[in-house]
Design a binder for these strands. Structure first.
Length: 837
RNA sequence: GCGGGAGUGGCGGAACUGGCAGACGCGCAAGACUUAGGAUCUUGUGGCCGAAAGGCCGUGGGGGUUCAAAUCCCUCCUUCCGCACCA
């Protein structure tokens, strides 16, 4: 009687796998390829069970695909640049590289301990110059194409990070994504930007390619983030002051322009000052403007804030009807969106309605809903905003047109007259990548007095991050204070020049890392396009929902840039995306700062990796959050032991048995039932793995099978060795993707010295499918929808056989009680429902 | 405010296209084996009534469609997530 010792078994098989290079992958065109990928970790703190859940799901998928004959690429790497490393280094008086390398070593130890089937030869680390060199290379390609550019801009500045944040990194309406208690400030700085907006249209359109493969909500989040809106730009000339440019307005409802009551500018609009200068309202207006510019920048307040505004004393001319409209300034108009100016149409827009009512601006109905009493401007309590079911009124020559027709006709008119054009606006803005931090990729640019901005030539890459920069944590870039780094010569004229001292946002690193896995050691190019063409697109990407916008949007952008450079052929890098739920403890995500982590290594030490893997798969469906329960782990542990004991008990008598020829001839009743349950389980488990990803119910099925086998004990009585072997082997193979070490050990015990990694996922032959079929079923008999009896009958009986049997049941007869059966519903093999009146 | 999820025993969760609600596991209870058991094995375990047979109720609330609803429709409530004055 052997005992289950996971520590020994797991170490043993991990060593065998390594020796046999089982998970090392090369292109094998004879097999279909499969690229399975989990989001790469940021090596910081401890690896906890939240991480392990992500990798376990990915590992199950990779192992199932491998068993099913796919050539599987399953790599792992490290998102190794970033702020925490820098902060930790300052705190612990060490170097970010040392701190990061320690963490990587620790993380790697844990991943290996869990037996994940990675091809470790392909491991990458983004802080390695051999990797970030290609970040710089890509930057230069984008620079050449005008996709990387420098501009002075108002940026989000986190006073704790001492750096600029991307819009995507400002969360909860104005807070830093890393310091959720810190309000982001607004500063004006020269920054490098990547022109994500160049691809805005494609980033929206290509979402169609992802439908079905990506979660609906991720697609929706991306679509909203990019925020396409189709409308028109219209110029309104200023009436009562000369020399001021016309005001450009963006609207999606040019059809309502006859209903405009005012033009409203954002407080920071460049025309506000010229308009106010010398205006009769100047005195009252200026303090209000100053006040408006100061008040809260928190967007969460903005949404609910009272709408306030003031009249500039000036007027603009509606180009359609030559009407003079007052020009206002108001806090609810955003400079960042559209043109920073709107026309207010109170009858047909909620915000305009509120604003105009408050300030007594007139309201004019210009779209009349079909089939309703004419709208009365005096009595309206809400604007009519619908696009459909309306006709234009009070709109001069456009009266009677539908909204859609009016939009077309009026846009055409505006264009012909030269005061407007159709325009598409996006919410998406360019990606600011400059960071005033040390631990990141240096931006490969120098500044020369003669030549200005000069890109570093390819042959001088990488621009290596100096190891000796002083990290103080005080404001400013550490590289700016590192003179050996800053002072250089101009690649063009050879004269003295200064290097760019900002580093790249770390999202650059993760935007293309998965391509590098295909060709990790290439020192001539970021990768060989042929290798990428073989493996891409990624068949299955697995990670947290937290990255639904940032990482995935940037990755999609990067892919399109690479396609246009000619490196790749596909439009989208990721075919299928799966977002797994979080692992929580005490209702909150595991995090070191909350002190609620369950360390992965402690878990493996206590129960073994297989138990940890099995529990995280069993406790909840993979897309849902999982509340960690120490008690429930015992269940997974007990089950594994139960399986181990079962195989251990029978292995000596079955390991030399011949392979069963799957013949229904001569099967005893006990054998028949055992084989049937086994094959039926296999069928359903296969389904759960392949299409539904219900790992939890797959495990439940395997547990049931195990219970059935136990119930048939002693198996030696009435079950021949070759059939015992068949059943135990199937059980072992089904467990292999989830508890691979256990399965290998059992496989060996069952008489296979070769290693289960060579075995295939069992596919049921026709004879086995026949055996999986039940011969006898239980049919429920209902009277008026209530269960009154159960029939044990042969499978496949129809109405003619079932109804008489049902009526013959005493309990059924009793409930019919002489009443007439008005209807009978028969679902073969399931139920009979007799409706009596 | 807009958009998208989710509400099932004491707990985690099953239930594929409407067809026995609560699979599987945890916990709990009883029994067996045992010097012992926080090991193992067996049995029971939604609620209420009942000695039992059995009956009634039950998937967030209310209504509807249907022979039949956790599942479909309407409505309300709770909760989580994303966006948030986007013109």
């Amino acid at each position: 009687m052997a005992e289950y010792h996971p520590q020994q078994i797991e170490a043993k098989w991990q060593q065998r796998w390594d020796e046999a290079r089982v998970f090392e992958t090369e292109a094998e065109p004879s097999k279909p390829k499969y690229y399975a990928l989990e989001m790469l970790p940021y090596p910081s703190g401890t690896m906890h069970m939240g991480h392990m859940r992500n990798y376990t799901i990915g590992d199950v998928v990779a192992r199932v695909k491998r068993m099913r004959g796919f050539d599987v690429l399953h790599p792992m790497g490290w998102d190794a640049f970033g702020l925490p490393a820098e902060n930790a280094a300052i705190q612990n008086k060490t170097h970010p590289r040392a701190w990061t390398n320690n963490n990587i070593a620790e993380f790697q130890r844990v991943l290996r301990r869990f037996g994940f089937s990675y091809d470790w030869r392909r491991e990458i680390s983004t802080c390695d110059p051999r990797y970030y060199r290609w970040n710089q290379w890509f930057f230069l390609r984008m620079f050449e194409r005008g996709l990387a550019y420098r501009k002075k801009s108002r940026v989000n500045w986190c006073p704790k990070c001492c750096t600029v944040l991307a819009n995507e990194q400002v969360v909860n309406g104005g807070y830093c994504w890393r310091h959720e208690d810190t309000l982001v400030e607004s500063r004006e700085i020269e920054q490098w930007f990547l022109k994500t907006t160049h691809y805005a249209e494609q980033l929206i359109d290509d979402l169609k390619e992802l439908e079905g493969g990506w979660p609906e909500r991720v697609i929706t989040m991306q679509r909203n983030w990019i925020g396409k809106s189709v409308g028109a730009r219209v110029k309104f000339a200023v009436a009562d002051v000369a020399g001021v440019d016309p005001i450009e307005v963006f609207t999606t409802r040019i059809d309502t322009i006859y209903g405009a009551s005012a033009i409203i500018l954002a407080p920071t609009h460049p025309l506000v000052h010229p308009l106010l200068a010398g205006s009769p309202r100047q005195k009252e207006a200026e303090p209000q403007l100053a006040h408006m510019r100061q008040t809260s920048v928190k967007t969460e307040d903005l949404a609910t804030a009272e709408k306030v505004g003031f009249f500039t004393g000036r007027h603009a001319i509606n180009p359609f009807n030559k009407e003079e409209l007052p020009i206002w300034v108001a806090n609810f108009v955003l400079m960042e969106y559209g043109t920073g100016a709107i026309m207010a149409v109170p009858a047909h827009d909620q915000r305009d309605f509120e604003f105009c009512r408050k300030y007594g601006l007139p309201l004019r109905v210009v779209v009349q809903p079909d089939g309703v009493e004419p709208l009365d401007a005096e009595k309206m309590t809400a604007p009519f905003e619908e696009h459909e079911d309306g006709k234009l009124v009070n709109s001069g020559p456009y009266n009677g047109l539908s909204v859609d027709d009016a939009i077309l006709a009026m846009s055409a008119h505006a264009q012909a007259q030269g005061f407007g054009q159709r325009e598409i606006t996006f919410r998406l803005r360019d990606w600011g990548i400059s960071r005033q931090r040390y631990w990141g990729t240096p931006i490969p640019v120098v500044y020369c007095e003669n030549d200005g901005i000069v890109p570093v030539p390819d042959k001088d890459l990488p621009v290596v991050l100096p190891e000796n920069a002083k990290l103080t944590g005080e404001g400013g870039s550490p590289l700016a204070a590192t003179h050996e780094f800053v002072n250089t010569t101009c690649p063009k004229c050879g004269g003295p020049a200064r290097r760019e001292t900002d580093t790249m946002d770390t999202f650059v690193d993760s935007s293309w890392y998965f391509y590098r896995y295909c060709d990790p050691l290439n020192d001539q190019a970021p990768f060989d396009s042929a290798k990428v063409a073989y493996w891409f697109p990624i068949d299955q990407y697995i990670g947290g929902i937290t990255h639904a916008i940032l990482h995935l949007l940037y990755s999609r952008f990067w892919c399109k840039v690479m396609r246009d450079i000619g490196l790749v052929k596909h439009n989208e890098p990721i075919t299928r995306l799966f977002t797994q739920g979080m692992v929580q403890k005490g209702g909150m995500a595991m995090s070191k700062s909350r002190g609620n982590v369950v360390g992965a290594m402690e878990m493996a030490d206590k129960y073994g990796a297989d138990t940890g893997r099995l529990y995280t798969l069993f406790a909840a469906p993979p897309e849902k959050d999982l509340e960690w329960s120490e008690e429930s782990i015992e269940g997974a542990w007990r089950f594994i032991n139960r399986v181990f004991r079962l195989v251990d008990r029978h292995a000596p008598t079955v390991k030399d048995a011949a392979r069963w020829n799957v013949s229904p001839q001569g099967l005893s009743g006990k054998e028949r039932e055992l084989v049937r349950v086994t094959y039926e389980t296999l069928r359903r488990v296969t389904q759960d793995f392949e299409s539904r990803w219900h790992f939890n119910s797959a495990i439940a099925l395997i547990m049931e099978l195990t219970n059935e086998i136990y119930a048939a004990e002693p198996l030696e009585e009435g079950v021949r060795p070759e059939i015992r072997k068949e059943v135990l082997e199937m059980l072992t193979l089904m467990l292999a993707p989830m508890t691979p070490h256990l399965a290998e050990e059992l496989w060996e015990m069952l008489g296979h010295p070769d290693g289960l990694w060579k075995a295939s996922w069992p596919v049921l032959a026709a004879a086995q499918k026949d055996l999986a079929r039940v011969e006898e079923v239980e049919v429920v008999v209902q009277v008026n929808g209530r269960v009154r009896a159960r029939l044990k009958v042969a499978a496949g009986l129809g109405e003619a056989d079932l109804v008489p049997k049902a009526l013959a049941e005493p309990a059924v007869a009793q409930h019919i009680n002489g009443k007439r059966v008005v209807k009978q519903i028969v679902v073969p093999d399931k139920l009979v429902n007799l409706v009596v009146a």
